[in-house]
Design a protein around this nucleic acid. Structure first.
Lengths: 193, 193
DNA sequence: ATTGTGTGTCAACAGGTGTTGGCATACGGT
DNA sequence: ACCGTATGCCAACACCTGTTGACACACAAT
């Protein structure tokens, strides 16, 4: 969606654009929205701040481009019902360690309304769509997605943002058997009394 | 600790100090650390920005005073082991709805290193101390506390910061039977394979 | 009445912010 | 070779930030 419909010929400045985007993602992930200044991002990319404005219009526009993100959730239709939780947590952990975009989005969502809005879109629409494929009562889909999001985002928040030592020090592989049953119950279980 | 050891005589400016602190907590909770400006806080409190500096030294000092927080975790020693999760989630939900300090801390922790540090202190020290009273293997206490923190903070993050509709719309009372078993397992259970 | 100190207001500083317009240069098509 | 355009840098703008110091007033003690 970014490079296909724009022009048939690749632009000479595509490399610059990509460099800016990479630097922006790093800064947004490390510092959050307001502390990540255009000047700092431009310095990282070894380019003039005005170029950022020309190519992305504004700081908001730059963030919007840098925070483009797809959870790439797998189709849960054919998955053995008892393995749903494990599959989900494994997918999220892999998605996080490999792409700092989610960390940038997470940090910015705390203070930037636009980032929060985008986060809602990702974790309500994309996640709810995947949860719907599980096959439980459709009336409960949204709530199940919300509960899953609360555990997933809480893990990310404590691991990558606040960096709670016990959560940071636990290898991803050892996290799975703890978190998987939680997600499993949120996806397919019923509330307890 | 705030008013007892300072002076035997109450100061004439104590009311102003309290007003500043209240306005600061509101702003920090609503806007996060960097967007909550001293000028805006002073305007809310209807006083001059320089008073904030005189009474709290700096913006960091003001935040440190505003983010003073005690989880007030109950002693879990005598609690029936099967009710630990329910008691914990109930306590946290009540603590949150009644005091916006935690929301201020949560939002600020995303971008401000000092706030993150304080959050670590609260959710590692205070929470781990409470978890230790449960009586499971002491070697697992820190990890159990971290897991509990991940779910608790994730719930707060999705409910008060990102404001995911399914999580916001669910009444606290209906959240309990979903979250309680999760905390229960993190506190007393063993990881699954 | 006169100090001295606590309380509050005002104006300003120095630095950083997003953003803009002008100007040089290098490229690609003719 | 030429010309239009894309790419890049520079300087500046208007605004906002935390922070500071000088000055005015009110109160309590002498």
């Amino acid at each position: 969606m970014t490079a296909s419909a724009e022009s048939r010929h690749p632009r000479r400045s595509d490399a610059t654009r990509a460099t800016i985007l990479r630097a922006a993602r790093e800064r947004f992930a490390a510092d959050g929205y307001e502390r990540a200044t255009i000047r700092a991002i431009a310095a990282d990319a070894q380019i003039d701040p005005s170029m950022v404005m020309r190519y992305y219009g504004s700081k908001e526009g730059l963030f919007a481009a840098a925070a483009e993100f797809d959870l790439r959730l797998p189709d849960l239709t054919g998955v053995p019902p008892a393995r749903l939780g494990e599959m989900l947590i494994r997918h999220f952990l892999a998605r996080w360690e490999g792409d700092e975009t989610l960390v940038a989005l997470l940090r910015a969502a705390s203070t930037n309304p636009g980032a929060a809005e985008r986060m809602r879109g990702i974790f309500v629409d994309q996640l709810a769509a995947a949860v719907a494929a599980v096959g439980t009562d459709p009336a409960t889909t949204a709530r199940r997605a919300g509960l899953v999001a609360s555990q997933i985002l809480g893990l990310a928040f404590t691991r990558y943002i606040v960096r709670l030592p016990p959560v940071v020090d636990t290898p991803a592989e050892e996290l799975v058997p703890w978190i998987a049953p939680t997600l499993q119950r949120y996806l397919t279980g019923v509330p307890e009394d």
